[in-house]
Computed example of a mutant assay.
Amino acid sequence: MSFAFHRPESLDAAIAFAREQGDAARFLAGGTDLLIQINRGRIAPKHLISLAGLGLDTIGETPTGYVIGAMATHEAVVNHPGFQTTLTALTQASAVIGGRQVRNIATVGGNIVNASPAADLVPVLLALDATVELRGAAGTRSMPLDRFLVERGRTDRRPEEILTAVGFDKPPAESATWFLKAGRRKAMEISVICVAAHLVRGGKARIAIGAAASRTVRMPDAEALVEKQGAAAFREAGRIAADAVAPIDDVRASARYRKLLVATLVERALLACADRIAGGEA
């Protein structure tokens, strides 16, 4: 493993250098996945461009929403005061990403750009209708996270672009979020299936699932049923979601077992949201 390490003084300098080096360069956020890929010989960049110290590590609040900088760590998400009630799914998902040492280094932006179908935080962000912001040589652009994700390991990011932030609206009153993860052990484990739900009393329902397809996916048909029929449709929503996914067989679980998990976890996540709304905990 041999590469040159660069620490630019500005985003523009980072972008310019990445554009100059092309495929030979990679941006380095937390590095918890990138360095593993390099060690295993899956990629061999000649240049690593650090994004540390460029002002991308903040979690900001506006009157209508939140903006999480791409370099914000998962531990920062776990401890953020604004995410402890209605947005508890964010803390639940970030809390199961590796151990504390990993969470203090691994970043939100890295979790998104890596485009792993099993990324734990991404289903929550999808359930919140999150939007990503990217900055490149042509300027800044934004798009829905659902459109940014293409398939396993692929996003709509251009080679010299930096994902700078992800944002979402504050949930309305009487709403709740919930995240559930199934793995072969309780900690430091890649998801067999993970599910996020966002429910608004008498209104919007959002369901997103990880590790069940070639990318993290939303479940629009299941969402529409819940919006129409409410709590009476939670179990059927789980069945619809299970029918819609296309998981794989691997050493951690069979495709059939993953479908059963989807049905169960979708129902449980929706029930948890409904219970929190009813109990005034949202």
Rank of each mutant, 00 (worst) to 15 (best):
M1F: 04
S2R: 13
A4R: 13
D12T: 13
F17K: 11
R19E: 15
E20T: 14
G22V: 10
A29N: 03
G31K: 01
D33N: 12
L35F: 12
R40L: 13
R40M: 12
K46P: 04
H47Q: 15
G53V: 04
L54F: 11
D57R: 05
I59P: 08
G60S: 14
Y66T: 11
V67W: 09
H80T: 06
G82V: 02
L87D: 12
L90Y: 09
T91S: 15
Q92W: 05
A93P: 05
A93I: 08
V96A: 06
I97S: 10
R100S: 11
Q101H: 13
Q101N: 11
V102P: 01
N104I: 05
A106K: 03
V108H: 10
L121C: 12
V124D: 06
T131M: 13
R135I: 14
G136T: 11
G139F: 10
S142T: 15
L145Q: 13
E151K: 15
R152K: 13
G153D: 10
R154C: 08
R157Y: 05
E161T: 06
A165S: 14
A173G: 10
E174A: 13
G183R: 02
R185Q: 12
K186W: 03
M188S: 04
M188E: 04
V192L: 11
I193P: 02
C194I: 07
V200E: 12
R201N: 08
K204A: 15
A211T: 00
A213F: 01
T216Y: 00
A222L: 00
A224I: 03
Q229I: 00
G230Y: 01
R235Y: 03
A242F: 03
D249M: 07
R252K: 06
R258E: 03
L260H: 14
L261T: 04
E267P: 01
R268K: 14
L270G: 11
A272S: 13
C273S: 03
G279P: 00
G280E: 03
G280D: 06
E281F: 13
